[in-house]
Structure formats: C-alpha cells, structure tokens
Amino acid sequence: MEPVSIVNENKKQQKKRKANKVIGLLSNKKKLSLNLFAWLFLSPYLLFYSWFMLYPIVKGFIISLYEWSIGNERTFVGFGNYKSIFQDSFFWEALSNTVYFVVISTPTLVITGILLALIVNAKLKGTGFLRSAFFLPHILSISVISSIWVFVLQPYTGLMNAVLKSIGITTEIFWLDSENLAWLSILLATIWWTVGFNMVLFLAGLQEIPDDYYEAARIDGANSWHCFRFITLPLLKGVILLVVVLQSIASFKLFGQSYLMTNGGPGTSTRTLVQYIYETGFRSNEMGVASAMSYVLFLVMILFAIVQFKFMSKKD
C-alpha cells in the first residue's frame, strides 16, 4: 500500500508543479505585456520631459563651460564663466536685489495672505464676493497689472498721488524714480497681483480646522487672540511652510513686475537676477555667461528651499 501512495503523491506533486509552471509562464507573458503597456503609456510624457526638462539642464551646464554666442565660434573656457560672474559687481548687485525682494516680499505676502483668509473665513455676509474680489487680480496678466500700477503711481496724473493730496500730503512723489519707493511699488503691485493665491491656500487650511476646537476654547474663556495663537496658528503650520516655500521661490524668480514697471531702475537698483540673465544672454549675446548665471540661480533656489524646510521643521 505504502509504495503506491508514495507514487500517487509524486504524481500529484508533479501535476501541481506542471500547473505552477504554466501559471508562471502565463504571468511572465502577462508581466511582459504589462511592462510594455507601462512604457508605452509613459513614453509621450517622458518624451516631453526629457526633451524640455532633462536635456536643457544638461545642455545648460555644457553651454556654461563655453564662450558661446549666437553666430560666433565657441571656445571651451572651463569654469571661466563662473569665475567671471563672481568678479562681476553687477551680478552681485542683481543677486542681492533678488534676495532683498525675497526678504521683503515673503513675510508680507504670507501675513497678508493669512489676514485675507481670516476675513474670508469669518462667515461674514457676502463672503463669496470678498473671496472673489481678493482673488480677482491674480487672473490678470502681469503686463496688465504692471500697466495699471504704472499709471496709478505716475506723478501728476496718477491716482495714488491724487489720493495722497486729498488727505493732505501735497509733495509730488516720484514712486518709480527712487530706489526704496521703486521697491515699495513693485512690492505693492506684487501683493495685489499674487496674494489671492496665498489666501486661497490658507483658506483651505483654515477650513480643515474643526469648529468644535474654537467652541471648546471659547467655553474655557479664550478670546479671539488666544484662539488664533493657540489653535489656528499651530494647525496652520503645514500650510504656512508650504506657502513660505512657494512664495520665496516665486519671489526669487521676480522678472515681469520689475522689468515692466521700472526696467530695473532707477539705474540698476531694482534689476533682478532673471533680468540680468536675460540681458546678458539676449542683449549682449553672451549665452555662456548667462547660462552660468542660470546655474547659480538654480543652486541658490534649491539651497533656499532646503534651508527653509529644515528651519521650519526644527521649530516644531
């Protein structure tokens, strides 16, 4: 009896193994077709991504190692372009202008964003109107925004000075002709244009905080400030971090407002890094130098983002 059963067992196992093999083959074939499908479906996006994202990064670095101008011979200069931009005082000025704008604009735009979000979240009558009104300028293009503000701030015929005159400030102010006022003007236009975006992000964060928290705190005798300080702010921390990072990156890329409103002036005092890259590459036809500057801009921006994430998560 025993040997027979063993033989039977063996036969059973063999059958099982065979079946497994068939399944294995099938799934191999299936896997292959699945992989094929995966790459096929990915390829259109990957084509664009590698062509217009990865390749330019590599090519940009290569260009930065050459003396490269359209229509002329190229000469390899190694890191010569980098060396020369670090000795270029205009580059340092543009970089410090850019950092200055990041420093003045990020806190202002974050705080105004929170304030507007609090107003819109306060369940006032006409909340929908308030929200749309604050967001509205964001859908206009930077060209329209700059044009409106240039006219608003123009001396003699501008709205701003007319309003100031009516409240007793009679000196004619030349908003775009002095360094500090020019920065203030660019900042004003930027707030008006972009703070709606930050407001919407903060609003979404505020709406995720349950009402019970506030009710419980009120019952315990907390006032509005306590509620804001000990409930809203801590629970909004994630969104604040997000907005600070997004905002400082956006401010670092400042170009449209300053180019269209002041053209970098008076002199070069509001010329930003992006504008200097544009002028070096497209007006002076020094593509190699401009490319090196782009790389520096890129690295500084990544540093910014890393430092901010570290700093904000440490504060916990």
Binding site: P56, G281, S294, Y295, M301
Partner: peptide
C-alpha cells in the same frame, strides 16, 4: 514595473527646476 520608483523620482525632481534657470539652453534648442 521595474524602475517605477526611479522614473517617478526623476519626474518629481523636476519640480525644483524653474523655467527661469533653463531659458538659455531652451532658446538655443
């Protein structure tokens, strides 16, 4: 599929690349 995580990682890294930093090579292309 094999390489899924790698491809995703490479794509996400692109979030850190601003257009402003690639205008020169893009224009020459």
């Amino acid at each position: 599929f094999k390489g899924n995580k790698l491809v995703f990682g490479i794509i996400i890294a692109g979030l850190m690349v601003p257009t402003e930093a690639t205008i020169i090579p893009l224009f020459l292309m």
